[in-house]
Amino acid sequence: MQDNLKNLANIDTPAAIVSLQRMQQNIARMQQRADALGVRFRPHVKTTKCADVVAAQLDAGAAGITVSTLKEADQFFGHGVTDILYAVGMAAHRLAHALDLRRRGCALQILTDSVEGARAIAEYGRAHGHAFEVLIEIDTDGHRSGIKPGEDLLLDVGRVLHEGGMRLAGVLTHAGSSYELHTPQALAALAEQERAGCVQAAERLRAAGLPCPIVSVGSTPTALEAASLEGVTELRAGVYVFFDLVMRNVGVCSTEDIALSVLTTVIGHQTDKGWAIVDAGWMAMSRDRGTGKQQRDYGYGQVCTVDGVPIEGYLLSAANQEHGILSREGTADADIVARFPVGTRLRILPNHACATGAQFPAYEALAADGTVQTWERFHGW
């Protein structure tokens, strides 16, 4: 329930702040991209794990959701979302949970990339009189998991599922290596590689007489830079809803697009070092130092005014569990006490929105009029 008395001046710190205006702009931008490319859009909700955010994505036109845990599937199914893709390789011990969801009416799709995994799914499904809907994960960039598009293994897995009585729903890939790029040209090339590889895998399955109705691709950078998605049926992306400093370095958003920040309070100083001490340490920001490998290192985050305006040159340069160290890049700031007096409220933009969001039990959703509404999120597996 909205509390009109709650605002950035009176909520406790540290707090995870979501700018509703920026979030809605990000949602609209990605949905428009999917619509223009002629594919359905299935957002990955692991970034937010929040029913209020997902409702906004579905209202904008998203068709179903992607999750990274079965707990997410449980939570969102409980909020009325039935079209759910569990996009992590299915472990055999989770099949009972997946079956329970499906028997309760959730149209859950699951994923595998091995003969062993496919056999486990097929055997469990047959033993319980149920045909799971299964996608095969495709490796189009050597980033993580999946089967390469041209491997014989692809057809072996497909046959185990199809001949084993399961519903071979299609193929899926994620070009995670896009996070390592930072030019439109490189991102567009990887987007085409992602598309072509996944389509090739689908065509090979079909040529072998195996069904493959779904061709699912996506990462936030490739989704935003793809020139064509010919042969693709579904696009996925997740972090776009908030964006973060890693995505800013990749080049698919500006600092002004980042919708998630951490509200913090100055609690002390080390004047000889030019430090201000804030109450947002790594327990608030997370340990993720993703920008440390990119062309611009933001430490543990970009310092902003309480209104969200970046203060150039000032970063959260180090962090302990509950203490953050705010300092100026380069030479120490001799006027740090006057610039950031004790009690000053600031906002810190995160390196990785997924990791920072995971530190909090709720978001404080900030409206354009300055009022704040609490949105619950959930943790765990």
Results as ranks from 00 to 15, higher is better:
A9L: 12
S19L: 01
Q21S: 15
Q21E: 14
Q24F: 08
Q24W: 05
N26H: 01
N26D: 01
Q32N: 15
R33F: 10
G38H: 08
G38C: 13
H44R: 01
H44G: 06
K46Y: 05
C50I: 12
G61H: 09
A62V: 01
G64F: 12
S68V: 06
L70Q: 08
D83L: 12
L85Y: 05
Y86W: 11
A96I: 09
H97W: 13
D100W: 11
R104A: 14
Q109Y: 08
H128A: 05
S145Q: 10
S145A: 13
P149N: 02
E151R: 15
L155I: 15
D156P: 00
L168Y: 01
L168V: 00
A175Q: 01
S178F: 08
A186Q: 13
E194A: 06
R195N: 02
A196Q: 14
P213I: 06
S219Y: 13
T220Q: 05
T222K: 15
S228P: 11
T233N: 02
M247I: 14
R248S: 10
N249T: 06
N249D: 13
G251V: 14
C253N: 02
T255A: 13
T255M: 14
I258C: 04
S261H: 05
I267R: 07
H269M: 09
K273G: 07
A276F: 09
G281D: 02
R287F: 05
R289G: 11
I311E: 07
I311Q: 11
Y314C: 05
L316E: 12
A319I: 08
N320S: 09
N320I: 11
E329C: 13
E329L: 08
G330W: 07
F340C: 09
P341F: 03
A355M: 15
T356H: 08
A358G: 11
F360S: 01
Q373R: 10
Q373P: 00
E376F: 10
E376R: 06
G380F: 09
